[in-house]
Simulated scan of single mutants.
Amino acid sequence: MTITATPISPRFGAEISGVDISKPLDAETVQALIALQDKWGVTMYRNTGLDDEGQIAFARNFGHLESLPPREGRPRIYLFNAGNLTAEGEINRSPSAMTYRKGDQIWHTDSSFMDLRTSYSMLRAVEVPASGGPTEFCDARSAYDDLPQEMKDKIANLQCEHSLLWSRKQGGADITHEMIMERHRPVHPLVSPHKGSGRNMIYAGAHCYRVVGWGWDESRALIDYLNAHVTQEKYQIKVDYAVGDMVIWDNLAVFHRGGQFNWDERRDMRRATVRELPAPPEGDDPFGELFKTMPKIEPVKA
Score class of each variant (00 low, 15 high):
residue 56 I to S: 05
residue 115 D to I: 05
residue 277 L to N: 12
residue 36 L to D: 03
residue 227 N to K: 09
residue 244 G to Y: 03
residue 253 A to S: 09
residue 244 G to C: 04
residue 126 V to W: 15
residue 116 L to P: 00
residue 227 N to W: 07
residue 180 I to Q: 02
residue 98 M to L: 13
residue 261 F to P: 07
residue 217 D to S: 12
residue 150 E to I: 06
residue 52 D to I: 11
residue 287 F to L: 10
residue 202 I to C: 02
residue 64 H to W: 12
residue 59 A to L: 05
residue 29 T to R: 08
residue 301 K to P: 12
residue 198 G to Y: 01
residue 99 T to S: 10
residue 25 L to V: 08
residue 174 D to H: 03
residue 206 A to L: 05
residue 123 L to P: 01
residue 83 G to N: 06
residue 37 Q to Y: 02
residue 301 K to E: 12
residue 267 R to Q: 10
residue 24 P to Q: 07
residue 72 E to A: 06
residue 84 N to W: 00
residue 13 G to Y: 11
residue 110 D to W: 00
residue 72 E to R: 06
residue 167 S to L: 00
residue 178 E to M: 03
residue 222 L to Q: 02
residue 195 K to P: 08
residue 118 T to R: 07
residue 213 G to C: 10
residue 264 D to I: 14
residue 168 R to E: 04
residue 293 T to N: 12
residue 96 S to W: 12
residue 175 I to V: 09
residue 30 V to E: 10
residue 196 G to Q: 03
residue 42 V to I: 07
residue 54 G to S: 05
residue 63 G to R: 01
residue 245 D to T: 04
residue 274 V to A: 01
residue 137 F to Q: 03
residue 245 D to W: 10
residue 266 R to Q: 13
residue 276 E to A: 15
residue 182 E to K: 14
residue 104 D to T: 12
residue 48 T to R: 13
residue 2 T to P: 00
residue 156 A to H: 13
residue 103 G to R: 04
residue 153 D to A: 09
residue 15 E to K: 03
residue 119 S to P: 12
residue 246 M to L: 15
residue 142 S to R: 04
residue 243 V to W: 05
residue 297 I to N: 02
residue 111 S to R: 02
residue 10 P to W: 14
residue 80 F to R: 08
residue 207 H to S: 03
residue 85 L to V: 13
residue 234 K to T: 00
residue 148 P to S: 14
residue 248 I to N: 09
residue 76 R to Q: 13
residue 268 D to E: 03
residue 162 H to L: 09
residue 18 G to D: 08
residue 240 D to E: 12
residue 122 M to N: 09
residue 124 R to Q: 13
residue 103 G to T: 04
residue 1 M to F: 11
residue 8 I to V: 06
residue 83 G to L: 01
residue 105 Q to W: 11
residue 13 G to V: 10
residue 184 H to Y: 13
residue 162 H to P: 15
residue 271 R to F: 06
residue 269 M to Y: 15
residue 254 V to K: 05
residue 262 N to Q: 07
residue 181 M to I: 11
residue 296 K to P: 15
residue 233 E to I: 02
residue 58 F to S: 08
residue 253 A to I: 09
residue 231 T to F: 14
residue 254 V to W: 00
residue 6 T to M: 11
